[in-house]
Amino acid sequence: MLVFLIRRLSQSLVVLLVMSFLVFVGVFAIGDPVELLVSPDADQFERARVIRDLGLDRPLWEQYGVFLLQSLKGDLGNSFVFNQPALQLILERMPATLELAFAAVIIAIVIGIPLGMVAGLRPHAWYSRMIMSVSILGFSLPTFWVGLMMIMLFAVMLGWLPASGRGETVDLLGVPVSFLSEDGLRHLLLPAINLALFKVSLVIRLTRAGMRENMLMDYVKFAYAKGLSHGRVIFVHVLKNILVPIVTVVGLELGNVIAFAVVTESIFAWPGMGKLLIDSIYRLDRPIVVAYLMITVLMFILINLIVDILYSVLDPRVRIADVKS
């Protein structure tokens, strides 16, 4: 277990290094942030001062070297726009995004697994066909369009739920969260459902496929031959078997949701990391974009690690030592 962790983390460091280089060079190539930062009527002397202050007069390899040295100290540079540490700016907005992402994944699991089980057990019933048809919609409708429609229906026409912002937040262990206040929960509902739509469809399809495949297995028939009830066979024997692929996909999707909730956050004006990233790309705020992607990579590495560990809990045939990188 320890060897596994050490090997895994050292591999992650290499990934981080390569990633940081690619992003650094990539953002450098996009354009010159000075054009956007300095007011158009500034004189030549003023421009030169800003360029020197930001360190943009030095060659690329030197800028990258300074960045690497600083990041070892935990400093990912200051935002060009806000003139605050990039890391701090991102971490401030992280709880909002995490809250939205977890809410979406929980919705996906709570709705997706039961519906998938029903559709898998009675594949020919009318309600199962309906579940599958709706899940195709969930897959294929673009998130931004569904988001706008939801705002139109629930916020504008019916006036049931607010359309934007986080609402009232409550501090939980020093972190502001929305889901503990009624107002915050009402604000969370629409964006979370919007973000969950695709995942619900995914979980339904995975669960249904696993259910149909497993119900035909000999172990199910053997379980029935022991005189077990339907409930015991389905919820203990079958469910535990189909959980392995679901955990994998949901784990990876969690990373995706956290890192790229950009569209939903923009539509619902949710003050999370995704919105910060979009704004920073517009303004060519390089430190924030680089820091954001570094954090994203780190997050994916951690989630993959947790998924691998969960594997060995769910499936006794997989032991941590067997999990290759």
Partner: peptide, 10 residues
């Protein structure tokens, strides 16, 4: 088939 009759995860 004894490989298939016992539930692998229990």
């Amino acid at each position: 088939d004894p490989m298939m009759t016992l539930n692998p995860v229990l």
